[in-house]
Design a protein around this nucleic acid. Structure first.
Lengths: 243, 243
DNA sequence: ATCGTATTTTGACATATATCAAGACGACAA
DNA sequence: TTGTCGTCTTGATATATGTCAAAATACGAT
């Protein structure tokens, strides 16, 4: 299965992680300078703080520099759905370009830092730098691809498959950030995982317990150790394999 | 709820519906000309014919000129998920920009015509015409917004709510194309609707029957008449309203 | 028209996940 | 340490949707 969420890349940077995290390697020195001029200051967010809310007017894209965020869409009747978990190097706010209004809300899940990218200026610059333009298109398209695979997950996978796919995705993204891929420190509660995966928290909890019984994971609350990565993959790819 | 699928607009055209269907009104005459030069010839597809398949290399976006298409993502184990139904004026292939490969397949659901938009040239032109650039970004962002609401649907709505939301969406899009919004001629089977909504065909069939009993719809196979639009809306917005 | 095939409906029953409820655990403050 | 609060786990049970099967209906080809 393709990855479930956002836009990772390499690490390390100058002004802001943006340079290598979210942007193309193939800019010349002077192009990079122009881009960095454009990036606003890095801002910090406390855990639980909103980056924006549904209906807020749209000015800028945001790139997560450190920490993590969740995005959530709200339904008239109060139901809600988490639509992504964003980690360092990933871009937030692409939905808002459509109507110059944010259509979801973004909340920090831990103390986090964010770089601001004024979108108008970014468009301007991307008209002048083709490789930057191309990169923006790829970022948006990647988001579309990821959302497709979440739809596949929500529409045709069962509970344990969904959780396995989720964990594998986190694991890959950890690896992409240079962290150990078999150790996960979840920032989100069972309730939030449930909301993301279209399941109730009890179902998530039971699935964790079951994975532990099966020797796939070592579960200590939000600290998860992946013991059997290959079998976890089989579980996602081959629905009947485990039961 | 926000709409579930694609990118409608007004109708009528010159070379290709593209002019008004998928593109911004605020281009000058000469800009429009340059754009139309870029659009390849209109191609016809028979019902069931593929526009592209997963893994095909990406050259062009496609705009539906007439007829309709479905897109489908495939999972290793053979499961599949329909991810969109496209009608006239809507754009296909945005997912493929990400890796220059199609990540889903698109199939005509009836005899259809499509305009081709070579993406490289389109990017080039959008560098020269800011309003065209902006329009492309909005099209991609709109797709992201719609996918968000499908995730909400798949992750937190029950069967009848999903079907109601689906029908309302079709109805709106019909209206946007200047057709009667209370009469639907479905191009897709119950199986396909089920695949799109994350349900089995029997569940779709039962929901249709129930809506008919309740006086919400008149169902004659694939011809659906919406009898009570307001109550259908309530059903989507207020989960407990009907039972 | 008539046949043959695919789609749709409907019923009886199975099952995955939700719901409700209680207790256990962990983090944090006093 | 002890207590409190939120989170997590686990059990018993309910329910929505899935599964299997058969009949009804629609549709295309001859």
């Amino acid at each position: 299965m393709p990855p479930l969420t956002s836009t990772p890349l390499k690490a390390s940077c100058s002004t802001c992680n943006l340079r290598e995290l979210c942007l193309p390697a193939d800019l010349s020195g002077s192009e990079l300078e122009r881009l960095e001029d454009l990036i606003g200051s890095k801002r910090s967010y406390a855990s639980g703080e909103y980056l924006f809310r549904t209906g807020d007017s749209f000015q800028s894209l945001h790139a997560v520099h450190s920490g993590s965020f969740k995005t959530r869409v709200l339904h008239e009747d109060g139901r809600e759905q988490l639509t992504s978990f964003l980690m360092a190097g990933e871009m937030i706010g692409l939905d808002a370009i459509s109507a110059d209004l944010h259509t979801c809300e973004a909340v920090a899940m831990e103390p986090s830092e964010v770089c601001e990218l004024p979108f108008g200026q970014f468009e301007q610059l991307s008209r002048e730098i083709p490789s930057l333009q191309r990169h923006l298109h790829k970022i948006m398209s990647r988001k579309i691809v990821r959302d497709q695979s979440i739809m596949l997950l929500l529409g045709s996978m069962r509970a344990e498959e969904r959780l396995a796919a989720f964990l594998l995705n986190l694991s890959q993204r950890n690896a992409a950030l240079g962290m150990i891929s078999t150790e996960l420190r979840l920032k989100m509660s069972r309730l939030e995982i449930g909301s993301y995966l279209g399941l109730k928290l009890e179902t998530i909890s039971r699935a964790f317990s079951r994975f532990q019984e099966e020797g796939l994971l070592q579960v200590k609350a939000r600290y998860i150790e992946i013991l059997d990565l290959p079998r976890l993959r089989i579980l996602v790819e081959n629905p009947k394999a485990s039961c």
